[in-house]
Design a protein around this nucleic acid. Structure first.
Lengths: 144, 144
DNA sequence: CTTTTATAGTTTCATATGTAACTATTTGCA
DNA sequence: TGCAAATAGTTACATATGAAACTATAAAAG
C-alpha cells in the first residue's frame, strides 16, 4: 500500500524562491562580510536607513520584514561600531531615531554599488521586458 | 557634499526575493514546526528523500542547495527520531544511503499537502499564464 | 486623575547555523 | 604496491537567531 506524493521540488515555488534568494544574497554577502565585518542583517538595516532616514527600529523591521529582536541587536552593534546614530524621538521617548553616521555612509557607498552590480549580474539573464514582467509578478505575490 | 545613492529597496530584486521567500517559507514552517518538532532543514531533507530515495548526504545537499553540515545534523536528528534510515553504500563505505522510514513517510504525508496548500495560496494570486511566465523566468535566473 | 492596555525596545535562554578542523575511506598516479 | 590528493561525513567552536519574558513609556478607559 504505497501511495505517497512527494513534492515536485524542482517545480515547487517556495523551494525555488528560497534557493534563488539564498544564492543571490549569499553572493552579495561574501563581498562585504569580512571586508567590513558586517552581518547580513546589519547591512540590511544600513540599506534601509539609507533609504528611509530617521526610521525607528520598528519602522526598520517593517521595511525589511525583519525580526524586531534581530533589528535590536543589529542596531546595537552598528551603534557600537559608530556606523549608526541613535537618538530619542521628540514626543515619544520609547521610540528611537536612527541614522547612518558619516562612517556608516562611507561603508554604504562602497557596498551599495557592489549589491547593485550583483543584482545586475542576475538580471542580465533577462531582457528588459522580462524583468518588467518579473517585477510585476513579484508585486502581485507580495504579502504587502 | 551629500551625494549618496541608497538602493531603491522596493525595486531591488534580491531584497524582494528574500522577503517573499522568507514570508512564504515561514508561513509553511509554522504549521509543522511545533506539531512535529521538525526544523525547516529537517523538513527539507525529508522532502528531498521523498523525491529522491536512496540519496547520500551529499546528494541531499546538492538537491537542496543546503550546507553539508546542516544536512549532517538534520540527518542525525532524523535518524535519532526514527524518521530516516541510514545504511552504508555498497562499494563505498564513506557514503550513506538515506531513506524515509514508515514513520517518516507518515509525517511526510501530512506535511506535503500542507506545503502544497500554502503554495496554492500564493499561486492563486496569479493566473495560469502568469504562473507559467513566473516559473519560466525563475528558470532563467536559476544558478543551476 | 489613575488604572488598564498597548507599544517600543531589550535581555535571556535555548537552539540553529557556518567555518574550519578533523576522521575515515577511496581514488589517482608514480 | 604505496603514498598523495580527493571525497563523505562529523565534530568543535564561535556566532546568529527566535520565542518569551521583561522594562519603560505612552495611549485609552473608567
Amino acid at each position: 500500500m504505497d501511495h505517497h506524493e512527494p513534492l515536485q521540488l524542482e517545480r515547487f515555488l517556495p523551494y525555488r524562491l528560497s534557493i534563488l534568494s539564498n544564492t543571490v544574497s549569499h553572493a552579495i554577502a561574501r563581498e562585504y562580510q569580512q571586508r567590513f565585518a558586517l552581518s547580513v542583517t546589519e547591512w540590511r538595516v544600513m540599506a534601509i536607513l539609507a533609504r528611509f532616514p530617521d526610521s525607528s527600529a520598528r519602522e526598520v523591521t517593517e521595511h525589511g520584514a525583519l525580526d524586531k529582536v534581530a533589528v535590536s541587536r543589529a542596531v546595537a552593534r552598528l551603534v557600537a561600531s559608530g556606523r549608526v546614530s541613535r537618538a530619542t524621538h521628540d514626543g515619544d521617548r520609547r521610540r528611537s531615531v536612527l541614522n547612518l553616521t558619516p562612517a556608516g555612509w562611507e561603508i554604504h557607498d562602497v557596498v551599495a554599488p557592489l549589491a547593485r552590480q550583483h543584482e545586475r549580474d542576475v538580471i542580465d539573464k533577462l531582457s528588459a521586458d522580462e524583468l518588467k514582467t518579473l517585477v510585476a509578478l513579484l508585486d502581485k505575490l507580495s504579502p504587502v
